[in-house]
Design a protein around this nucleic acid. Structure first.
Lengths: 158, 158
DNA sequence: TATTGTTATACTCTATAACTATA
DNA sequence: TATAGTTATAGAGTATAACAATA
């Protein structure tokens, strides 16, 4: 990726022992196989680009949703993102230790925690959103504009 | 899903505390977010449908590729599927314990293992392929024919 | 020196179950 | 009874590093 220009120019770097090309057989007809490949690329690129703010895809999505829905409960957040409530506890614990989020007492329901971003959380989220936008542009370039638009239209609201 | 007809008819089952609908904010503009949601659904459905043959998506893909490329090396298999060589070792160990795969000595290169399916492996793979085809049909139905075709065209060969 | 397969480690994610406190 | 948050556990998946055997 990084040295694609030079590699294209030199071209003598050995084709990575390409070999006879492995047959994927039935996997060629399994959409899930290719969706997974896209997803793996997305996570790798996302993690790399957000390494400066040290946020995983899951942590980023949690901050985004809290930021746009201040005061929501952990259950609501977990259900929205498809994360297990049990896992969200540790996730929030990590974010809270970094002073990015807060769990406040919910006025209406003593069982619930009202989730909020701290001032630091809002600032970091703003930086993270900018990096996530760069990641999105990279994905668009990787797929090409047509395939990107097509996949978005097909996957939206799933 | 299973009781969608009855639920639509009764409708009194309480809308699962739908609430004010959580705002996804920027996530609505992140293709990776929706790709991940599709991928999670795919894995869950796949695992459930192949529970009878007790194969994970990774194990299935390994059997398929070995089946179509008898004698290939672990490195080639790992590179093809994007699996770490180290992880493939344990994966193959599990399949070998179930007598589904074999690691034979490679005639040309003493370092390599030539991977093969056993007779049981071929038989189980045939059953698994049929179940995977059912999963594919379910995914197509879940997405709808148009979105399925669109996503496949966009994701193919990624 | 580089590659193949292997072992080991650590961390994340997923899936459960069980517990508490509130409702 | 049911729900919200928590703790604990076990199994996958991921990412490394290091090693022996072979090239």
């Amino acid at each position: 990726m990084r040295s694609s220009k030079r590699a294209a120019k030199l071209a003598i770097v050995k084709p990575a022992e390409t070999g006879p090309a492995v047959d994927l057989d039935d996997l060629n007809n399994r959409l899930g196989y290719f969706v997974r490949r896209v997803q793996v690329w997305v996570f790798q690129d996302f993690i790399r680009r957000l390494s400066g703010v040290d946020l995983s895809p899951a942590q980023f999505s949690v901050l985004v949703v809290i930021g746009a829905n201040a005061g929501l409960s952990q259950s609501a957040l977990a259900a929205t993102l498809g994360i297990e409530r049990a896992r969200l506890v540790r996730l929030l614990h990590g974010l809270e230790q970094r002073a990015l989020t807060q769990r406040l007492a919910d006025a209406d329901d003593g069982r619930r925690h009202a989730l909020h971003l701290t001032r630091d959380g809002r600032k970091l989220l703003a930086r993270a959103k900018a990096l996530a936008a760069e990641h999105e542009a990279a994905l668009k370039q990787k797929l090409g504009p047509e395939r990107y638009r097509m996949m978005f239209e097909a996957a939206r609201d799933f």
